[in-house]
């Protein structure tokens, strides 16, 4: 019995010690913490590294948690225990703003850092093709209209949809539903393509139901969920010239020798077409800054300054080397002033 009492006493003492020590950790932090999107991760880390090398501040720690997970952490509260900056591959939602406000995060600054294009790429061994959002939707939707009613997708070959397309089985490797890239693909390719097919509106009059039907991807093997690892998709595409892969522009840019991107409605995927708004499958990328932390955690203003500087975001900046597609100079200059002054986001 005495032994057991000792054990309990020791455990109790340990917990008390940890409990007493805890506030000391929570009081201060001298390192910026960033969480959020895996798409923005390569850009924020590049800025963080360059910022850290300037030597005045510690290198910020960047976590890749996904946009939703990142904003959840970001909105959890104010104080050193919570991150200062959130990366997002889509704009923050009203529900997330409300969540933030409920936890005391009332003012934040929004910074649009540029664009990411979504590539539909195939191996260079295949002949180059031109797709469109309508073709993509017809190829990948779970149900498509035939004679005025929605039926399970009957298309097996690309040539079933459009005789001009190759006689090859539809096979698209893409990210799983948890990915921000998938969200964007659903919205920009599936929904937009679906809207252009008039029969869908007639078959499903209810708007919410229609939207859901539009964004439901077929599950009969034509769309293969290839996990979050884009390098894996790149490898699989080299092995199978008939397959297409869905991923971000930076991966395409780094693998131009093995991959080629399909044109969308005749528009090629290049930094220029995305920045000009001609390429359809492009999305803006955002960074959110917690205003309450500026001046408390050292270096936040300077970090944002580095992020928005021409040597990072500019046309020849190092973020462009990482695959970011910058905004036009005039818009960048406005964004820079707003970001550095921490102009609060009005939603």
């Amino acid at each position: 019995m005495t032994t057991r009492t000792h054990v309990f006493a020791a455990t109790a003492a340990l917990s008390v010690a940890l409990g007493l020590a805890a506030p000391a950790w929570a009081q201060s932090r001298d390192q910026i913490r960033v969480v959020g999107s895996s798409t923005v991760f390569p850009f924020t880390t590049a800025v963080a590294e360059s910022f850290g090398k300037s030597g005045r501040f510690k290198t910020p720690v960047v976590e890749s948690t996904g946009t939703g997970g990142g904003l959840k952490l970001f909105c959890a509260g104010v104080g050193p225990a919570h991150p200062d900056i959130a990366d997002a591959s889509r704009r923050i939602k009203k529900s997330e703003i409300d969540q933030c406000a409920a936890n005391g995060v009332t003012t934040m600054t929004e910074l649009k850092i540029g664009y990411d294009g979504i590539a539909l790429a195939s191996s260079r061994k295949a002949a180059p093709v031109s797709l469109s959002t309508v073709v993509l939707w017809k190829a990948l939707a779970k149900e498509v209209p035939v004679n005025g009613a929605l039926v399970a997708n009957p298309y097996r070959l690309w040539s079933d949809i459009d005789p001009a397309l190759p006689r090859a089985a539809i096979e698209v490797l893409g990210p799983p539903p948890t990915s921000g890239t998938r969200d964007t693909f659903n919205e920009l390719a599936m929904l937009e393509g679906c809207k252009k097919v008039a029969e869908v509106a007639r078959a499903v009059p209810d708007e919410t139901a229609r939207e859901r039907a539009c964004m439901t991807i077929r599950e009969d093997g034509a769309y293969v969920e290839a996990g979050e690892n884009d390098n894996l998709i790149v490898q699989k595409l080299s092995a199978n010239p008939n397959a297409f892969g869905v991923f971000g522009y930076s991966y395409l840019d780094q693998n131009r020798d093995t991959l080629q991107a399909a044109r969308m409605d005749g528009v090629e995927l290049t930094a220029e077409t995305v920045a000009a708004g001609k390429y359809e499958l492009a999305r803006p990328l955002y960074v959110y800054v917690k205003n309450a932390h500026a001046g408390v955690i050292p270096g936040i203003r300077e970090f944002i300054g580095e992020y928005t500087s021409e040597r990072a975001m500019g046309d020849d900046g190092y973020l462009v080397d990482k695959g970011l597609i910058p905004e036009p100079k005039a818009l960048r200059d406005v964004a820079r002033v707003e970001a550095v002054n921490l102009t609060p986001l009005q939603f």
């Binding site: 991760f41 880390t45 963080a48 590294e49 850290g52 510690k58 290198t59 720690v61 890749s64």
Partner: peptide, 9 residues
């Protein structure tokens, strides 16, 4: 617990 992160230092 946040150890999957980009840490330079």
């Amino acid at each position: 617990i946040g150890m999957v992160a980009f840490v330079v230092d």
